[in-house]
Computed example of a mutant assay.
Amino acid sequence: MNSLIPKIKLIVRKLTGAAQLEERMNVRLTEIQENITDLSQKIEILVGKAEHEDLVNEVKGLEKKIDVAFSQLSSVQRGLMAESRTSPLPKEEIVDNNPTPTPPLDRLAAETVYASIEDKLRGSSEEIRNRQSGYIKLLENVPSGKSVVDLGCGRGEFLELLSESGIDSLGVDSSAVAVAECQEKGFEAKKMDLLDYLSSCEDESLRAVVSFQVLEHLSFPSLIQVLAESFRALMPGGIFLGETPNGANLAVGGSTFWLDHTHVRPLHPELLKHLAEFYGFTDVRVDLVSQPEVPWKLEPDEDKGNSSYAEAIIGLQEYVLSGQDALLVAYRPN
């Protein structure tokens, strides 16, 4: 752990004109290092005395705090890695009296904070892979010969699934952090606005356009432009997959949707279906996925029947217990 801190500081020092950034990051990294050192010392003391259940529980609590500290440090590292890729390193022997100004700290801070939010709220990479693995079957039934583009590829979970299935793919993301992480994993990824990328594609040049947890970040004009450009760029028989929080689920639209400060508005499944059909897609459907599991769900009693109260509750709970995400599946006609 201690060996990681100097490496991060070295990256910061190499950034052109990044004195202010280095100072602030050093303070943050020092705080994290001090917290980890303090927690590690406490664990060493407690482990020697962990003969009682209360002490064991306290050890577990401290371990969780260390995990949080590691996550924070990882987010800082990802932000610095992306910034170092986009900022050219000056040659030590050359003194530039008019250095190119470095990007403001706000951009790096935003990249790092958003990476932290994604790690915390969306789930681990393994969880995302498990959720998206079923989507591969939809692509296997689409004519091959062209590439699949993942708009808003994020940490590259779906790119990894595509690679394992032998499907040519490309990731596109506006986040330098996300693109750097995908490239580190060996995937082809571009830092580019998704509409700029789609507009640059030739007609009928893509096997599939996929976009997971991205559409809700777009303004309405951008959303319909994505559908129109995707239709144009897809080969006949090509597929569009768009996963977004289910705007018809009250728990999502009224609560969890707003945990992400970059969300614009929830999208109702019926609206997604209508828009896809309007722009020419066929065999359009919206699957409700990520079903919530709760212990208090009331099931219909087919043998004895339900009281009027039970029927009301069963009807209302569907607005809360329907799939938390909506998957738009749409095809370009052959």
Rank of each mutant, 00 (worst) to 15 (best):
W258R: 14
F278E: 07
T37W: 04
E181Q: 13
R232M: 08
I314H: 04
S222R: 06
R13N: 14
A110K: 09
S222E: 11
L267A: 13
D168A: 15
K64S: 13
C153H: 01
D287L: 15
E277C: 11
V289A: 05
I94F: 10
A251H: 13
P300Y: 10
E202I: 05
L250M: 03
R28A: 15
V284M: 12
V177F: 10
T262H: 06
A180V: 03
T244K: 08
R85F: 05
D38P: 00
Q213N: 09
P103H: 15
T86K: 01
E164R: 10
I45K: 11
L15F: 02
A208R: 08
V286G: 09
P292E: 15
H274L: 14
H263A: 10
L241Q: 01
V264S: 15
L327A: 09
H261E: 07
E23W: 12
P269I: 06
M192L: 12
R232Q: 05
W258I: 08
D260K: 13
L267N: 10
S200Q: 09
M1F: 02
G134Y: 05
V113S: 15
I5Y: 11
Y114N: 14
Y331L: 08
V209P: 00
K304Y: 03
K185W: 04
T282G: 12
A312L: 06
L198T: 03
K185V: 05
E216L: 09
V284I: 14
E83A: 10
D283R: 12
L288C: 14
V148R: 11
L227P: 00
Y135I: 00
L62P: 04
I239R: 05
F158Y: 07
L105D: 06
G315Y: 01
L316W: 07
L138T: 00
L272P: 04
L29C: 11
I32T: 06
A176D: 10
A310T: 01
A69E: 09
L215V: 04
Y331W: 04
A248W: 00
